[in-house]
């Protein structure tokens, strides 16, 4: 399966200012140091090969939306952050090009605004003939989605959507067969609760989506459950919004976790890969890149045996699991 990241930012969408782009271009030109390029492709190769990520690219600013792409059958999407708008359009392109059915299976971590705000802009929901099943650990998922399309918030009411939309509440402690995936969920510490999902495809590959999850300092003994849930996963997408110091001081009880607790949990679970996710909206690209490098270093320093590969999710990233 492929994991496509359509939105990776935490809490609030962000967009670069004109000055941010001017700064990147200036740094790139300075790094090129008078070199000339025979073609745009040659310039692109320089950007890809020699510029650091934060200079040549951006981690993006859309909020949580991650696709589990099985290449065929219904689309599988975790969360409906602002990244969902672009996914919706791309999925229709794929339906046309590849003849895939307009069928969508959503899995919601929770109902906070940054995780559902993309739904009113999800074009397939407006199409008669499209089929949408929204899975959630929360029984009030429908209420949350209807409420954000009430007149005071949005011009198009939920009932005007033409797609066939169904809601399904899932329980923890059991495994479901949904589409071509085995799916289970775990409850996480977060305001109004959140749920992590574990997906296993028919080849036995496992991807875990665990965002907006606080690993509380006075409940460390309870982390065995989380380690069990991450066990031997090929990929774990983790909320790494804050530094550890922030999670035990000013931002304690804000419902998020740190890069280094994510590494420790993945080490304990013998997971293969960790994707840093739900990036702090006040972070610049340089800040996220620094956090990424520090996380790689922490993993090296605390590694016991098999290495854990750390990647940093960004909008537009697609990885094979």
């Amino acid at each position: 399966m492929h994991i496509r990241f359509w939105g990776t930012r935490g809490s609030l969408p962000v967009a670069p200012h004109a000055s941010t782009i001017a700064e990147k271009v200036s740094r790139a030109l300075f790094a090129a140091n008078g070199r000339s390029f025979a073609s745009e492709a040659a310039a692109r190769a320089f950007v890809e090969g020699e510029l650091e990520f934060a200079v040549g690219k951006t981690y993006g600013g859309a909020t949580s939306c991650v696709e589990i792409d099985l290449g065929a059958g219904p689309f599988v999407i975790c969360d409906m952050g602002s990244g969902l708008r672009e996914f919706g359009l791309d999925s229709l392109r794929r339906c046309n090009a590849e003849g895939r059915p307009q069928e969508y299976h959503f899995f919601l971590s929770h109902l906070h605004w940054d995780h559902i705000m993309g739904f009113p802009f999800f074009v397939p929901a407006f199409l008669a003939g499209a089929k949408i099943v929204i899975h959630a650990g929360h029984a009030d998922a429908e209420e949350a989605l209807r409420r954000q399309q009430e007149e005071i918030s949005f011009p198009v009411p939920f009932d005007w959507l033409k797609a066939d939309i169904a809601f399904r509440t899932l329980e923890t402690g059991r495994e479901y067969r949904i589409g071509r995936l085995d799916v289970s969920l775990i409850e996480q510490h977060h305001s109004h609760s959140s749920y992590g999902y574990r997906f296993r495809d028919d080849r036995g590959k496992v991807a875990v989506y665990s965002t907006d999850s606080e690993h509380k300092i006075d409940l460390m003994h309870g982390e065995a459950d989380v380690v069990g849930f991450f066990e031997a996963a090929d990929l774990v997408v983790c909320d790494t919004m804050y530094s550890l110091a922030d999670t035990v001081s000013m931002k304690e009880d804000w419902g998020h976790s740190s890069n280094i607790v994510a590494v420790d949990l993945c080490h304990a679970a013998r997971a293969q890969r960790l994707a840093l996710f739900h990036h702090e909206p006040t972070y610049s690209d340089a800040d996220i890149q620094r956090m990424y490098r520090e996380t790689i270093r922490y993993e090296e320093l605390t590694r016991d045996d098999a290495p854990l590969e750390v990647i940093c999710a960004h909008d537009g990233l697609c990885i094979e699991v």
Partner: peptide, 15 residues
């Protein structure tokens, strides 16, 4: 040196 790095990465050197 290892602990120093860990204290810096975790930002524990700030608290």
């Amino acid at each position: 040196p290892t602990m120093r790095e860990i204290l810096a990465i975790s930002r524990y050197d700030r608290i």
